[in-house]
């Protein structure tokens, strides 16, 4: 019954948007490809492919660089969902700082530049089985739940800087301030952790002196 309904909606959608070209690799036929949707699917394919390469490549630095592509693609998806401020926050924080931090971490742990044969652990088949099962279950549930739901992207942008600032500093001030305390705690914790403390046996006092 629901399948018939989806076919009906697809037929109406196809007649409504017959001027648009068909969405490439758009999946089942109940979809109504608009321009935004085609862009979303294309960018989503790029994002998903970059994420796959990130978790499967054997070159550690390439994994970090493909992560840039995946996170940038997600920023474009936020833009397509009219959440502009979050898109730019994503670009600034993820692409700007998190990936740089990861590259610093790779550099400081003396990661091999070329192909490292031991990038994947021995439980790869089990991980693949769990991931495929999770993906299948999640995609099935999500498609079954939201196959007849559309987002109305018209009207004023819902994530512009003005809207975001207004809602953040009117309704979410207290969590915002608590988050600043959390960031301070994380900063202090990272500094304390990454300082080269001397061991407690006193044999590394020179390290402590040199570090100061």
């Amino acid at each position: 019954m629901t399948f018939a309904a989806t076919v009906a909606t697809a037929a109406t959608a196809a007649t409504a948007t017959s001027t648009h070209p068909a969405a490439p690799a758009a999946g089942p036929g109940f979809l109504s490809p608009t321009g935004v949707e085609i862009a979303f699917v294309l960018v989503g394919l790029v994002t998903f492919g970059a994420a796959l390469v990130t978790v499967t490549t054997r070159q550690l630095v390439h994994a970090a660089l493909w992560l840039v592509v995946a996170l940038g693609g997600l920023a474009v998806e936020y833009l397509l969902l009219t959440a502009e401020f979050i898109a730019w926050v994503q670009v600034l924080i993820y692409l700007g700082s998190v990936v740089v931090l990861l590259l610093f971490g790779l550099m400081l742990t003396k990661a091999p530049v070329g192909r490292s044969p031991d990038a994947d652990s021995g439980n790869r088949p089990a991980a693949l089985a769990v991931a495929v099962a999770a993906a299948a279950a999640l995609v099935w549930v999500v498609v079954d739940a939201f196959r007849t739901t559309w987002i109305d992207l018209g009207g004023p942008a819902q994530g512009s800087t003005e809207v975001t600032g207004r809602m953040l500093f009117q309704n979410w001030v207290l969590p915002f301030e608590a988050l600043s305390v959390l960031l301070l705690a994380a900063l202090v914790g990272a500094v304390v952790l990454s300082r080269k403390r001397g061991a407690s046996d006193g044999g590394h006092g020179s390290d402590k002196e040199r570090q100061r």
Partner: peptide
């Protein structure tokens, strides 16, 4: 826009990250 597009993409990305967490050996890749 159809809501299934971002939901399915999020599910696929989550599963990809899950695979990476389980299968990777280097802590930074995790």
């Amino acid at each position: 826009m159809h809501l299934a597009y971002p939901a399915v993409l999020a599910a696929l990305l989550f599963a990809t990250g899950l695979y990476g967490v389980l299968a990777r050996r280097n802590a930074i890749l995790v």
